[in-house]
Design a protein around this nucleic acid. Structure first.
Length: 269
DNA sequence: CAAGAATCCTGTCAGC
DNA sequence: TGCTGACAGGATTCTT
C-alpha cells in the first residue's frame, strides 16, 4: 500500500485498462469508467485489503490473493507479463499494473463513506497493530473455540491480516503450539501472544517497507522478510531459540487444514 | 453452529 | 530436455 501511495496519491488517472475481468470475483463493470479521470486522494489498509480513495466518493478495494502484486514503472511500456489484469496510468507519466497469475486476487468498488460495510470487510476482526487489539480482546475471540491455534489465527474474524507465514512466526515467538486448542490459550499464553503478533508484523512491515521504498523493479521481487523467518520454511533446521540445546528436535513441518505449519516442538507448548 | 475439505488458477520445483 | 505430481503467501463455499 505504501508503495502505491507514494506514486499515486494526489495524481489523476489518465488511463485505465482492464485486460481480464475474471478475477476471484468479476471486476465491476464500471471500474474503468470510475478510474479514468479520477484523482487519487488517499490510501487505507484494512486486513489484507488495500483501499484506494478517489475524489469521486468511490474507493477501489484491492486484494492481492496469493500471487498478486502491483508493478510500478514509467508509462509507455507494454505489459511485462500476460497476467497484468489491470493497468493504470497517472497524469505524471507513471504506470501501475495489477499482476496476478493465479487470479485469486480481486478488485472492487465501494463507496468511500461505507468502506467497512463492504461484504468482504464486514465481520473482519481487529487490526493487530491497533491499540484496540489487546489481550482481553484476543481472549474473548478465542474463548470456547475448539480449533487448533493455527486455524484460529488464520481466521480473519479473530484477528485481521495474519497469513500462513505470520501465524507460524507469531506462535513460535509466543511459545504456543499450533496444535493447542484455541479455547485453552486465554491467560498466560494470550498475554504472550498479543505482543508476539505485533512484533512479527511490525518487523515484517519494516523489512518490506525497506524494499518498497525504492521499488520500481517490475520483477516484483519480494525477497525481503524471508531472511527474518524464524521457523517458516525451515523444517529440519535447529530453531533459533535452541542454540546448542542437545534435545532440540529442530523445526518441524506439519499440515493443518491443508496448510503447512512450522514450529518447534520443544519450545512451543 | 462450528470445523474441516474442496475449490478457484497458474507457476515453480523436485524427481525421474 | 521434458514430463509428472506436489505444492504455494488466501478465503469463500460446500460438506460433515
Amino acid at each position: 500500500m505504501r508503495g502505491l501511495q507514494m506514486r499515486l496519491e494526489g495524481r489523476r488517472l489518465v488511463r485505465a485498462v482492464a485486460n481480464r475481468p475474471d478475477m476471484r470475483w468479476p471486476l465491476p463493470v464500471a471500474l474503468v469508467d470510475t478510474l479514468v479521470g479520477a484523482r487519487v486522494i488517499g490510501f487505507r489498509r484494512r486486513a489484507k485489503y488495500i483501499l484506494m480513495r478517489l475524489d469521486s466518493f468511490w474507493s477501489v478495494l484491492i486484494h492481492l490473493g496469493m500471487s498478486g502484486r502491483m508493478v510500478i514503472g514509467p508509462a509507455g511500456r507494454n505489459a511485462v507479463t500476460p497476467h497484468e489484469h489491470l493497468e493504470l496510468e497517472t497524469d505524471d507519466g507513471w504506470r501501475v499494473g495489477f499482476v496476478d497469475p493465479r487470479r485469486f486476487g480481486s478488485v472492487d468498488l465501494v463507496e468511500t463513506a461505507h468502506e467497512d460495510a463492504h461484504r468482504l470487510l464486514a465481520g473482519i476482526g481487529p487490526e493487530p497493530l491497533d491499540d484496540a487489539f489487546t489481550v482481553k480482546v484476543l481472549e474473548a475471540a478465542l474463548a470456547g473455540k475448539r480449533t487448533p491455534m493455527k486455524a484460529a489465527l488464520l481466521d480473519q474474524k479473530v484477528v485481521a491480516g495474519l497469513g500462513n507465514i505470520y501465524v507460524s512466526e507469531s506462535l513460535y515467538l509466543a511459545g504456543i503450539s499450533p496444535l493447542r486448542l484455541a479455547g485453552t490459550v486465554p491467560g498466560l499464553r494470550a498475554r504472550r501472544l498479543v505482543p508476539a503478533i505485533k512484533a512479527t508484523l511490525t518487523e515484517a512491515i519494516a523489512a518490506g517497507g525497506s524494499t518498497l521504498r525504492d521499488y520500481v523493479q517490475p520483477s516484483g521481487e519480494l525477497g525481503y522478510f524471508q531472511q527474518a523467518w524464524k521457523v517458516y520454511g525451515r523444517a529440519g533446521e535447529p530453531c533459533p531459540g535452541c542454540p546448542g540445546e542437545p534435545t532440540c528436535p529442530g523445526v518441524r513441518r506439519i499440515v493443518q487444514s491443508g496448510r503447512s505449519t512450522f514450529y518447534c516442538p520443544r519450545t512451543q507448548k
